[in-house]
Structures are given as C-alpha cells and as structure tokens.
Amino acid sequence: MPEKPNKQRAVLLGGLVIGSLWGIPFVNMINCCCCAGILLGGIMASYLYREEFVEGMPPFESSDALITGLLAGIVGALVATFISNLIHLAFGPVGAEVMKDIIEKVLQRLEEQGSIPTGMYDEMLEQLEREINKPLTLYEVLKDLLFSVIILPIFGMLGGLLGFAIFGKKKTAQPA
C-alpha cells in the first residue's frame, strides 16, 4: 500500500510564508492581529500537503495537518530570524521605523480625539526612538530566535488545524 506523501515541500513552503510574514518589516504588521500571518502560513502548509494526496494513498488526517503546521512554524522561525536580521544588517532598523511611523499616526489621531492625555504622545515617541537606536547584538538575535521558536510553531499548528477544518479530509480511494 502506498505511504503518505512526504511533508517536506508543504513544510518548506509554509515555513517560507510564515517566515516572510513574520520577518519582513511592514508585511509583518499582519501579525498584530493575533498572528494572522502565521495562522495563514499554517493553513497554507496544511492545504499544500492535502493537495499532495493522490488516489490509493491513506487519507489526509488531522494529525497530518497538526504536524505540518507545527513543522512549518519551526521552519518559519528560522527563516524569519534570518530575514529580519539580514534586512536589519542591510538597511538598518527599517522595521522599527515603519512601526514608529504607524504608531505616530495612531497616537496623533488619538491625541486629536482626546483619547490620550497630552504629553503621553512625546513620551511614547521617545520610547520608540530608544527602541530604534538599540544595536543589533548576538544576544538580541538569540532572544528573537527563542521567542520565534516558541510562538511560531504554536500558531503554525493552530493554523494547520484550522486548515484541516476549512478544507476537510481528502478521501483517497484505497486499492482493493
């Protein structure tokens, strides 16, 4: 009886999507909504793996979706750390600057509406400036990697399971 297809392709592609959506500045803003980018990557990995099942193979099951999402999250963590640090080395802290621009706009709007006390705006901007000027050290890179390796597989796995719930089992006719 033919075995289940190899997860390698789905995991790598899913991991690449997760890594890109987590590591590329501005694009990674999507994760501000409860890691939507990672969930999407997990869903995609699960979908890609499901598509590899052909007639005669055992069916695509929820455990396949869980493992694919989890592995894609681990690969994504490595890819994201690589991408974000590469961008930081090449272009400087663009991610933090993009974030600063966005937060600046939000704060400005909130101050105009009177939702935040006067003076808080400048204080928060100072805080952001300090974050931007922080140098890139090995400690920071490892800390980044550690957080990513914890968070991304969890949300990747949830994405994989959501993918299974969305696309469902793939029934493959078994040979008689």
Partner: peptide
C-alpha cells in the same frame, strides 16, 4: 468561534498520533 474548529481537529489529531 475558533475553538469550535480547532478543538475537534486537535483531539482527533492527538488520538491519531498516540495510536500510530
């Protein structure tokens, strides 16, 4: 709404992994 989609798949998946 999310647990309604995640929990059944998760329980099934863990059962399958244990079985295998």
């Amino acid at each position: 709404i999310l647990p309604l989609y995640i929990v059944p798949s998760l329980l099934e998946a863990v059962g399958q992994i244990k079985m295998s």
